[in-house]
Simulated assay, not measured.
Amino acid sequence: MALGRGGVSLVVMLAFVASSCQTEDKRPLPHYTSNGRGVAPTNTAENKSNRHFIEFRSRYALTYGHTYVVFGQADKNGNMINPEVAGLAPASPDAAQYVIGHFIPVPASTGPTDGDLEEQYRSASWRVMLSDNEYNDTVAYIRKLQATSRLWEASVYNCNAFVADIARHMGYKAPSIWLRPQQFITNLREMNTG
């Protein structure tokens, strides 16, 4: 039985998606912090003025993981004060929706998911300190993205794609959306900080 052109495309796409999920995560990667220009702030006055942040994060999960952002204010020691989380994931905790979402789009949620702020699950992160204006612009874009992102589909618009949109809005380059979350966040940081 010969596969038609559409059947071959489907087999190739499924093989690509499956192969991207076969690599293993590394041990948790160190936390990185930089200012909006890609370098760590060293000036004390600059540190005091940049109390807002966005942190691009990945975490471990029973599957291949999750990519999302955490944003808000930090105290003088860098500890988060009332952080908010935004990411894209299937709206239902039912594993069937996650599996179906690898083939067709499923309804999505754009807020926090279980484990996002639990340190033991963090696999990689990159925190960018922002001025008030940069922060306000970024948060407005995140809110707009949350309002318009209604569907999740693993190979078309997944959690990496959602975070990539935020990064590109901020002027950063973004890696392929088909990487594992830990690789995605690591590559995002490396592409933009040298």
Rank of each mutant, 00 (worst) to 15 (best):
M1Q: 07
A2K: 07
A2M: 11
G4P: 03
L10W: 02
V12R: 10
M13K: 07
M13H: 03
F16Y: 13
S19L: 15
S20E: 12
Q22T: 14
Q22I: 13
T23M: 04
D25Q: 14
D25A: 15
D25W: 04
L29V: 11
P30D: 07
P30Q: 09
Y32T: 12
Y32G: 05
T33H: 01
S34V: 12
S34K: 02
G36E: 13
V39L: 13
V39C: 05
N43M: 10
K48S: 10
K48V: 07
S49F: 07
H52R: 10
E55A: 15
E55R: 14
F56L: 03
S58P: 09
L62M: 04
L62Y: 01
L62P: 02
T63L: 14
T63R: 03
Y64K: 03
V69L: 07
V70I: 15
F71R: 01
G72D: 06
Q73W: 06
A74Y: 00
A74W: 00
D75V: 07
D75G: 07
K76R: 11
K76H: 04
K76Q: 12
N77C: 02
I81H: 01
N82F: 10
P83A: 05
P83C: 06
P83E: 04
E84N: 09
A86C: 11
A89T: 08
S92K: 00
D94S: 11
V99D: 00
I100P: 01
H102T: 02
F103M: 11
F103R: 04
A108N: 00
A108T: 00
S109Y: 00
S109G: 09
S109C: 00
T110E: 04
P112H: 01
L117C: 10
E118G: 01
E118W: 05
E118P: 01
Q120W: 10
R122L: 10
R122K: 15
S123G: 11
S123N: 12
A124T: 05
A124I: 08
S125W: 03
W126V: 10
W126A: 08
V128P: 09
L130I: 13
S131K: 09
N133L: 11
E134A: 14
N136T: 08
N136M: 11
N136A: 15
D137C: 02
T138P: 09
T138S: 12
T138N: 06
A140H: 03
A140Q: 11
I142C: 02
I142E: 02
R143P: 01
Q146H: 05
S149N: 09
R150H: 13
R150L: 14
V156I: 15
C159H: 05
A161P: 03
F162T: 12
V163L: 12
D165N: 14
I166H: 05
R168L: 07
H169T: 06
H169P: 04
Y172T: 00
I177M: 15
L179G: 02
L179I: 06
Q183S: 15
Q183R: 13
Q183I: 02
I185H: 00
L188T: 08
R189F: 11
M191E: 12
N192P: 03
